[in-house]
Design a protein around this nucleic acid. Structure first.
Lengths: 333, 333
DNA sequence: TCTAGAAATGCTCGTTTTGAGCATATTAAT
DNA sequence: ATTAATATGCTCAAAACGAGCATTTCTAGA
């Protein structure tokens, strides 16, 4: 069974972009590190730290990523994981660019913001600036019922462009799945699905930018959330989805904490990421009985009440339990 | 704050390889679709269907992947998801190749094998051929205690090459985490971690191939499992890890089933993926009460006993529950 | 035809986990 | 001292889970 080798020698080349969604929690606010860029052909827009992968200089993809982030912001972070590789950085590029095509790899990094500054460039922005509909800290955000749902429903009922008779049903189902319309529940992890639905419906600026012809159908009403360059908002949505899912089964929440913390500080950090739906006493029981933390013996006074015991992360927990994390149930009221 | 554009125009190009780990379950055996290749410079070896991404021909990465798989095997699959992007396809390539460097994107596809054949090329191989230590269907595999653990322990205790005093501890901890030595539990999802540990320890053929100098320390004893070309075995390990994790919170198991099936057939398929640790009556209660299936009204006779009711997947479940899946607990006896 | 064997299915029961809330302790501010 | 705010301990009912017994309904063979 001899055939040509799989990898042909004349295989086309593409350029690889490395992009970092660097997430932290600062004063109970979930934030992402943003650098404002002025690329040619597109107006100034928010951007994630990023740069091309250069195999000659970077031994691995991750090393390349760290180098770019350090160069652009001065930040060195610890935890990082790869999110996803996107074949088209905004379909704009896809439609118009010639080879070499650009493929972008998104990364999620988690870090604790050291008050005694270190950032040389770039700023921390609340991630809800880009996804206001994800901010459930003060209950269901008004924008959902005022903007998203009605405009998405209109889109779902739009006559299909091409002969796809089942399209309206598909759209209505996706709408229900993403936004919990018609009795469904809001799943805090579906950040990417929601963004992609809004993109397809032409309700975010990036869609108008990439596909001007679609946007015509949906110009009545403001665009939703602050846009970003290329596909960076999609990468950020992927990052939020991932971190919201991951803290439930891996102890990554501690990447966002200082070495010592009170249980309530830990809870506040979890709630900043997930949304505020945790019962204080049960949260305490959860993290203690799971062996995620151990008391340091110290207490923190000035809490506004009784002093709180300080805890630290018990690293050994990863050796003891198969999926240690803050196992709060997804999608509750 | 004006600076150079992020993406430089002289950015280096790389070649992107698309690789598919196409997984199915055939007669209670988990299998993967393998094509045997004879690439230059490396002897004949098992390979996953794969090919380079060509932005000119393929509108998206996924379309490119499907095209290559179809060309190489004749198979068209349904469900597919991206796994990971590897920056080095075996460090061999990294060390010796010149630009353009190759980056490989791994995909997981799930499909149901239609008995009335369709495969033009390639063969289905049990995935345990590549990872015999993952096969717990007849209890703890002998190879774990006979080969893996002792040889890994020797490696963990090896004097570190460079000045890294804490290395032995790190190695011992990883060993414990991956293989549950010293009282830890075996976590069926850590397939990739185990493979990478074996690679680092020089116990799989790929490590010897990529880093001949390391292998010298570990030549006493057979190499473990059938090797694959490039980094394909690592991609397969990633695929197994992913599918083992994912069936617990997404109804992907039904991608492996025919339209109608009995609950026991479903259980057998889950057990083929995860390992056999399910209580029959409780499994039934689990999938029924989760609303994952609905009876068709038909029964299947010739089961060897009382006829079994036939069920089908209830697609609506994804609209009702945030994380529908076969929620068996990870890492039990 | 009758019976043993095999598998499917229904059900119980004790344990563990979870959701919710009451009660008490310890601080700071007034 | 009193009050407000927070930390922390504890209880209790509901739900989920793990294990096993019992019954039903088929096939195969005496």
């Amino acid at each position: 069974m001899r055939r040509e080798p799989l990898i042909r020698k004349d295989a086309p080349s593409v350029e690889i972009g490395l992009n970092a969604a660097i997430v932290s929690v600062h004063k109970d606010e979930p934030v992402v590190l943003v650098v404002r860029e002025t690329p040619d052909s597109i107006g100034a827009a928010d951007s994630l730290p990023s740069g091309p992968f250069s195999p000659r200089e970077h031994r691995t993809l991750e090393i390349g990523l760290r180098a770019w982030v350090h160069e652009q912001t001065g930040l060195d972070f610890g935890y990082v994981e790869q999110l996803y590789t996107f074949g088209d950085r905004g379909r704009h590029a896809l439609a118009e660019d010639r080879d070499p095509h650009v493929v972008s790899i998104g990364y999620l990094a988690l870090t604790h913001i050291n008050e005694t500054a270190e950032l040389q460039r770039g700023t921390w922005h609340s991630w809800y600036q880009y996804f206001p509909w994800e901010d459930w800290r003060r209950g269901r955000p008004a924008i959902v019922d005022a903007q998203l749902v009605p405009r998405l429903k209109a889109w779902a009922e739009m006559p299909a462009m091409r002969a796809t008779p089942n399209r309206p049903v598909e759209r209505a189902e996706r709408l229900r799945m993403c936004f919990g319309t018609d009795g469904g529940a809001w799943d805090e992890e579906k950040v990417l699905d929601r963004y992609e639905l809004l993109y397809e419906a032409g309700l975010v600026d990036e869609a108008r930018r990439d596909r001007p012809e679609i946007a015509i159908a949906n110009t009545d009403g403001p665009q939703l959330g602050t846009p970003m360059i290329y596909d960076h908002r999609r990468i950020l949505a992927t990052a939020i989805s991932r971190v919201r899912a991951k803290i439930k089964y891996r102890p990554v929440i501690f990447e966002l904490m200082p070495n010592e913390f009170t249980l309530y500080e830990l809870q506040k950090t979890v709630e900043a990421i997930l949304g505020p739906h945790l019962h204080k006493q049960n949260f305490r029981r959860l993290v203690e009985s799971a062996g995620l933390v151990e008391p340091t013996g110290q207490v923190k006074t000035r809490t506004g009440g009784r002093p709180a015991k300080l805890f630290r992360f018990r690293r050994e927990v990863v050796l003891e339990r198969p999926a240690p994390g803050v196992r709060v149930k997804p999608g509750r009221a």
